[in-house]
Design a binder for these strands. Structure first.
Lengths: 330, 330
DNA sequence: CTGAAAGCGCTAACAC
DNA sequence: GTGTTAGCGCTTTCAG
């Protein structure tokens, strides 16, 4: 390659890497020779020598035995956004779906495969999160959705999001608003949403109820069971703020089965901005995090380019669809 | 590292890579030293020296300006399955979302970043597919959804899938079944579905109509417009086989708006097995490809481990939900 | 079974 | 502005 262009090996390297000290003429000759020979720099060698990887590893925690269709679309969105953000920053994305212990791997940085790591996915895979726990507080690791509370995390602005949701319900005249969601210790994001819900209700002189939640394997089923429990409890309600869209879909189904009209009798708002909410029955009004910013924050945090910790809150917005009626006048 | 264990560098390499010629005792000593020092093999150096990459590059073609939530979940499913398959085969997945020309990159193999490539994503990004066209027929490249017809492809068993869908509609007593979908040259999969629809209709002595399709930016909108066009055409229909779920959601909405009951008046079946079909109104009966096998086929093809070409058809199954009424007796 | 030596293909100091 | 030289951290002959 070098001889073909009539220059030294290092000149080839400089020319191809855009080193400004190379003459346009020389660079042209090198380019030409490279094209003629189909030459490309070997990324492995370049990275070995330069000590960099220009790669960010993204680990998606999944549940054992689940196939691709069962992964929460929210995590796919996060994955896509993170890949896009990495690319924008000139980094590649090495992605690893991890569900079974035999595939657990947290050593992408030590093995010099990546400069930073992003962890995301379902919080309901204890073995996986236990395995990854030790690295969650590292400065070159960013995570979304971990069940632990002893480390920084990137997350939606749950507080602002819950406020938007509850105030939207209030604007439509709802006063007896219930919260459906899992507020277990390991679900920090849902706890935050619940707490904000309580706060907003109080501010308006209204009574906030306890969180309603029934366990099940999948979110939609949790939603169905929780909605049924809420109805059975004979507690009056005319609005539901649901901690996540996947559960809200189940809630919507049960309400419909029981003959409770949405948004006529009860207003429902979810959280996550899932695209499938556009086709649910009725279409689901929801709080959507800015996925693009989420990806950027995760990538930046993983690469140690994040300034303050408190900046790790992704802004949210309300996506108006059809599960809450129009705001009442005056 | 080597001195710490009191052995030669090459012994360390052999011990850690599981070379059977190393004594258990020696291996234990090496392991111990490695743990003590936090030593890990540098993947860049190992791959450079060995000449292998053990990596498969996955390129997801997206539309410019689209954010993560607008990517068809079908492609996310394919992506997830391919990553899982790669992992199962001992390969890593380097994933690259490509939408804008400045990020186009098809040289993952030449730059020794991957041993094989998988391309998938929306077929409606001409610049991207034109760019990738030259590599689509290579033996180390597998693709799903390309708009070109001059190369092998991995795809769902469209023929069998269309048959299952149409026969299911027939089983519920529908006789005037319409096909909604884009059968343009560049949409090979939809053409195949349409052709099978025609064939099955003929077999049953029924008349197959022309494909119904109206252009729009997004699939759901195409579905809405197409359904409207079908209704306006005053052509009688009591069943619709829709070429993909994303369009079917739009079809369902328009039918509902026009007061046409599904599955009461009209039965609807989609294709793709999107998870969100479980929450649509009504839940969408659909033909689902086996995503796990799809991922395996894509990965195998990319690594040149696929036997015959005709084996690149992924089996499909019917997912019964609520958009077709129960089969009629006898 | 283990050691010695070579070298994968680059990039980065350092010359000039 | 370009050449010379060294060496990134491994794996792989080849010896013994």
């Amino acid at each position: 390659m070098a001889e073909r262009a009539g220059v030294n090996q290092s000149t080839v390297s400089r020319a191809l890497s855009g080193d400004p000290s190379i003459t346009d003429q020389t660079r042209a000759r090198v380019q030409e020779a490279a094209n003629a020979l189909g030459y490309r720099v070997d990324a492995r060698a370049a990275r070995l020598r330069s000590g960099k990887t220009r790669t960010i590893a993204i680990i998606v925690v999944a549940r054992p035995g689940m196939d691709a269709t069962e992964i929460n679309p929210f995590h796919y969105n996060l994955l896509g956004s993170t890949c896009a953000a990495a690319s924008e920053m000139g980094y590649q994305a090495l992605v690893s779906f991890q569900s079974e212990p035999e595939h657990f791997d947290r050593h992408f940085i030590e093995t010099r495969q990546a400069d930073g790591m992003v962890l995301l996915g379902t919080s309901t895979n204890d073995a996986a999160w236990d395995y990854h726990h030790p690295i969650l507080s590292r400065s070159d690791v960013a995570s979304w959705g971990s069940p632990f509370t002893d480390h920084d995390r990137v997350d939606a602005d749950n507080c602002a999001g819950a406020r938007i949701a509850v105030e939207r319900l209030l604007a439509s005249g709802h006063r007896q608003i219930a919260f459906i969601g899992d507020t277990a210790e390991t679900q920090k994001q849902f706890r935050e949403r619940y707490e904000s819900y309580v706060e907003v209700m109080r501010e308006h002189g209204l009574e906030a109820g306890p969180p309603v939640w029934k366990p099940a394997a999948m979110r939609a089923e949790q939603g169905r069971k929780s909605a049924a429990a809420l109805i059975t409890s004979r507690r009056d309600f005319d609005g539901i703020f649901c901690s996540c869209d996947a559960m809200a879909f189940g809630v919507l189904e049960t309400l419909q089965e029981r003959g409770i009209a949405v948004p006529g009798d009860v207003g429902v708002i979810g959280f996550d901005g899932l695209g499938s909410g556009a086709h649910s029955n009725p279409p689901l009004t929801t709080v959507e995090p800015d996925f693009r910013k989420a990806g950027v924050m995760l990538a930046r945090k993983a690469l140690g380019k994040q300034k303050a910790d408190d900046a790790c809150r992704v802004p949210v917005r309300l996506v108006e669809r059809g599960s809450v009626r129009k705001p009442t006048e005056g």
